[in-house]
């Protein structure tokens, strides 16, 4: 087994099978599953809501249970950064950049202050 893991082509097999096939198949299934789904149908509105909630789940996971460098930052600081992002976004009339900059400012500034 260790010979297989150590060989030069192993990472490429991983990327092709565990990377490409494992992600791309969902897109292909999505194309076929969409079939004759119409943009103005209720089913479409439901699918959109499911996709939105799923991405929201990923957002929450990336903020609350991150791996690596962001995981070293205390959870209260991460939440404070997100909260100030929301405040900045709303204060400056739903401006995307305002939300991002205020969140990043609190996170980077706060973490630099703490360590």
């Amino acid at each position: 087994m260790s010979e297989v893991y150590g060989s030069w082509w192993w990472p490429y097999v991983m990327i092709l099978v565990a990377g490409f096939l494992a992600t791309e198949c969902w897109r292909w299934i999505g194309v076929f599953a969409s079939g004759k789904l119409r943009e103005d149908s209720l089913l479409f509105a439901w699918v959109r809501a499911v996709a939105t909630a799923l991405i929201a789940g990923i957002i929450a996971r990336l903020v609350l249970f991150p791996e690596g460098v962001l995981g070293d930052v205390p959870v209260w600081l991460r939440l404070a950064a997100v909260a100030s992002g929301v405040v900045g976004y709303k204060l400056l009339n739903d401006r995307l950049m305002a939300g991002i900059i205020s969140a990043e400012f609190v996170l980077i500034g706060g973490w630099a202050f703490l360590i």
Partner: peptide
């Protein structure tokens, strides 16, 4: 690894379904 990646990529399916009619 393939299972872990596939689970993290499931979201692409409803996203694609929602985009195709558009």
């Amino acid at each position: 690894a393939a299972i872990a990646v596939a689970l993290s990529a499931v979201r692409l399916m409803p996203m694609t379904v929602a985009l195709m009619p558009v």
